[in-house]
Amino acid sequence: MTPKLKKSLLYWLLLSPLCVVILLPFGVMFVTALRPRDELFVYPPTWTFSEFRWENFVEMWVKTNFGGALLNSLYVSLTSTIIAIVLSIPAAYALSRYRFSGKGLYRNFLLMTQMMSPIVLVLGLFRLMVHLNLVNSLNSLVVTYVAFNMAFTIWMLQSYFNTIPRELEEASWIDGATSFTSLVKIFLPLAVPAMVVTAIFTFINSWNEFVLALTLIRSQNDYTLPVQIFSQVAGRYQVEWHHVMAATVLATVPVAIVFSWLQRYLIRGMALGAVK
């Protein structure tokens, strides 16, 4: 046995308990989503079931207003991602390229906002949205998601911007470009991958957010997916678990795939960024 093979076996052995615990609920999710309703509560509980009931997904879609919640989630996540990126690009560019007084202060301010969790402020935010007459409007979520994500997007963009050599812009100025041309023709094309990665992470953050959506959205028609699914579970005597699990499959699997594909960028970002 080669040393590497030996090491691999050892590592997998060590990692396997964790892997099992991580994967177990996903197994539960799939087998529940696909089993017939009357096999949910059998005693003793068992993993096996009689048939793959794909209709569960269709039923769930119709009964739980999944489509509406999906659209709400898409609207909130897309809008807040776009606004967050648009507001963050100039700020990240300024932090990455200019020396100015107050820069350190601003970065610390951003760090602080990143630390402030929505839950501590949720009451104040709720009252703010009442004043602004935005309670029950999806736009209240858009605004707050942008604000709470901005520290992350600015920090992430800045750490990528720092890897784009300043000399490229300097060379373009000397070549006769104005600051604006240089930005459009040289800098932004090179920054596209960073912006895409950052946008996707922001999207996922907004997609997954729970506390604010639970608080600021009161009417069922405006629920986002996490709240929608939570409302199927909480405070009900009879929980349609096969529907809940079917909804969870649809809400998590696409996001999980995209995230798994992108996680190495996050690790790279961590290595480059403030946590250097």
Binding site: P165, E167, L168, E170, A171, S172, I174, I186, L190
Partner: peptide, 10 residues
């Protein structure tokens, strides 16, 4: 100007 790291537009 010719830069140390060339600064070619990648």
């Amino acid at each position: 100007m010719v830069f140390q790291n060339y600064a070619l537009y990648p």
